[in-house]
Design a protein around this nucleic acid. Sequence first.
RNA 1: GGCGCCGUACCCAAGUGGCUAAGGGAGAGGUCUGCAAAACCUCCAUUCGGCGGUUCGAAUCCGCCCGGCGCCUCCA
Length: 487
Amino acid sequence: MSLMIYNTLNRKKEEFIPLHPGRVYIYVCGPTVYGHSHIGHAKSYISFDAIIRYFRYLGYRVKYVQNITDVGHLTDDADEGEDKIIKKAREEKLDPMEVAQYFTWSYFDDMAALGVLRPDISPHATGHIPEQIELIETLLEKGFAYEVNGSVYFDVHRFPEYGKLSGRRVEELEAGARIDVNPEKRHPADFALWKKADPSHLMKWRSPWSLGYPGWHIECSAMSMKYLGETFDIHGGGLDNVFPHHECEIAQSEAATGKPFVRYWMHNNMVSMAGEKMSKSAGNVLLIKDLLKQYSPLAFRLFILSSHYRSRLEFSDEAMKGAEQGLERLSGVVARLQEVQSQAEEIDGFSPPISIEEYYRRFEEAMNDDFNTPRAIAVLFDLAKEVNQYLTTNTKYHKPFVDELHLFYRKLATDVLGILPEKIAPTAEALSSGMVEKLVKVTIDVRALLRKEKNWNLADYIRDSLQEIGIILEDRPDGSTGWKFKK
RNA sequence: GGCGCCGUACCCAAGUGGCUAAGGGAGAGGUCUGCAAAACCUCCAUUCGGCGGUUCGAAUCCGCCCGGCGCCUCCA
């Protein structure tokens, strides 16, 4: 069973064959750090997080690079306008690096809160100015770029394959250009590699051409090739980066090295709200920090991964609540498995009522089909039903079997998808010490006596009161009472 | 104007030529139960925006129409 990946370059699914056996070299476009991240960003990073976790599950050694863009992206028209970070700095009366640094930490905090594993390398654009200058020099030497007035532009006509990723033609771009024509450019579709800074510009570096700053695509080429090689396996990012960003990256990189840049291009689709793409400019953003005030990070991951990464996802409170409930169901089954593990034993002649291998197979089959997490998650739910049946129809449990079931969720739900915690919220059985636990136990015992006397009013009063302080009691058919913390 | 995507039940969402259209949530009924919660069982789209066509057979392919969206400017 081979791993198939949808490659934007060919618009079809292709078998994944790594350049170096057993290894995956992957670059994903990171954030421009001029504001807090919203849940649209989160879809991208959670999707690639699951993809990388799955590669590791398959046994690949992954080198994951994700840039931090702390310079270069402009606000308005292609060549004029003000750098976003500088704009923010001016507004807040801060040094641009203070802005970039502040939002970099904010981004890292958000990702940690969402359980997104850190990339192996998080290179900063401003930390790689020499590499970018070097790349531009190569492009000039090879005649793919030209200098005008201290700025350097890439000449798209010198690179006939320009447009191969996004399916555009230079002539069409010319016709439909909504960009104000920059008189320095030979052709409207040419893009800047280096811009000369005007005297008031806040971020600038010395270069052979001028005191200036790098163009807005060159950083990704410079940094990805520095850490992953001139040709590497996967480059990922948002669908909205296909053109012009990734198209330009290909042009710059392949022109400079004469080699294929990236083997598999992967693009995630957007989050929408009320039918419209979530974006800062549209103003319909929900920040990750605000989302997490209301919903649990794991439920949000479940929500994100229950749609395919290449599909658009419609966010709503109703959908998020659905995810919360779904997560409750999954964590419920794992909590019961945990609970049962301590009392389970070896049962002679035990024959497993569930084929766990079959569920592994189905999960992998789904993930191997271009990381189809919605189908993979359905497998987890299907098994949950069977496990619950097993747990409710038996009173004695076969330890190795219970362990195996538990391991299944541990590996796939916790390690690969990251939708279940390492440890489920404690239950009475799982705990042997602690004052809270002891107090709850005493209370439950008292309530059991009241129930024996059929003093329902008092018994219910205790249960309701505990619920108010976040402790849920569950009476079971055998007369015992379990409890858990309210999520 | 150019390029492209999507429209599956109340909500989110898989499925892209062939058994009964995944899964979750919500909803209805039932088992259990003093009640509740959880769990389990049953039900919940004869139908996939509409109309034609291709085919033995289509949600899936083709055409037209309706509706929504993305990119072409920074964007995950």
